[in-house]
């Protein structure tokens, strides 16, 4: 019996974990995912480095970072959290990498010709997806706009809250919600063609900042990536996903 236990323990120690760790770890706000999935292969091709990105809401990533998650670069969907990391000396000076927009997306063709306010109050709309305003910047911006226009109380009961902007998009894509406040960048993905985009000019543009983290395990690769973000290749990709 004792031998068996020893053998098991020995096996646990020696079985190598196959996954090779990446040369660069990025904490990426979910709205930028469609663009990032093109930027990463381009960067990998140019530098030969491997990149691993985690996509979720800015608030969640921020929580993970201040608790010591081993990311190199944080690309948020707001200015607030990178600035906060900077004042806490957890990150280098933040820079703006994109400016995004909130849109209303629906798969209900009857709503396509309406304004977003009319779509919201339409009887055929029972559920409107929104990203969690507490943790996801696109949700924060949407809530602030609805409050400013005195629509928040009226629409609150219709809102289905996604944990990130990608879950809000997914709620509409699966047909669970009739419409949703989504990131404009998602409108350039193949799934989005099944529905239509209603612009929401009243929503503030989402100023997205990023930073290199002070405890980055791979500071050199991080530096290279930040330089790459300013390249014409990335500018073209960003434009193709509707970022300014």
């Amino acid at each position: 019996m004792k031998r068996l236990i020893t053998l098991c323990l020995a096996l646990c120690t020696f079985v190598p974990i196959q996954a090779r760790s990446a040369d660069l770890m990025i904490a990426q706000a979910a709205n930028f995912m469609p663009a990032m999935q093109e930027i990463i292969p381009a960067f990998e091709k140019e530098t030969g480095l491997t990149v691993q990105a985690t996509y979720t809401s800015t608030g969640k990533l921020y929580g993970q970072i201040i608790n010591g998650a081993p990311f190199d670069v944080f690309l948020a969907a707001d200015a607030l959290r990178p600035e906060k990391l900077y004042t806490q000396q957890l990150a280098a000076k933040p820079f703006t990498y994109a400016k995004g927009r909130v849109v209303l997306w629906t798969r209900n063709k009857n709503l396509c010709s309406k304004t977003w306010q009319h779509a919201l109050s339409s009887h055929s709309v029972a559920h409107i997806a929104i990203a969690n305003p507490e943790t996801a910047s696109y949700g924060t911006v949407t809530k602030a706009m609805l409050q400013k226009l005195n629509l928040w109380e009226k629409t609150k009961s219709k809102l289905a809250v996604g944990q990130s902007i990608s879950q809000a998009f997914q709620y509409v894509a699966t047909g669970a919600a009739d419409a949703g406040f989504c990131a404009y960048s998602y409108m350039f993905t193949p799934q989005a063609r099944q529905g239509c985009v209603i612009h929401v000019p009243e929503a503030e543009p989402v100023l997205q900042k990023g930073c290199i983290l002070s405890n980055a395990p791979h500071p050199n690769a991080a530096e290279k990536f930040i330089q790459f973000l300013a390249s014409p290749t990335v500018a073209a990709i960003k434009r193709s996903y509707g970022y300014q």
Binding site: S57, K60, G63, N132, E134, S157, A160, V161, Y171
Partner: peptide
């Protein structure tokens, strides 16, 4: 419930979801 609930206060935001969101929002 995280997948099908939509976290609507008073209707589908049960304690486990509310705790998760509270932790995420610190």
């Amino acid at each position: 419930i995280l997948m099908v609930g939509g976290s609507i206060p008073g209707r589908t935001q049960v304690a486990s979801i509310a705790i998760y969101e509270a932790v995420e929002a610190m």
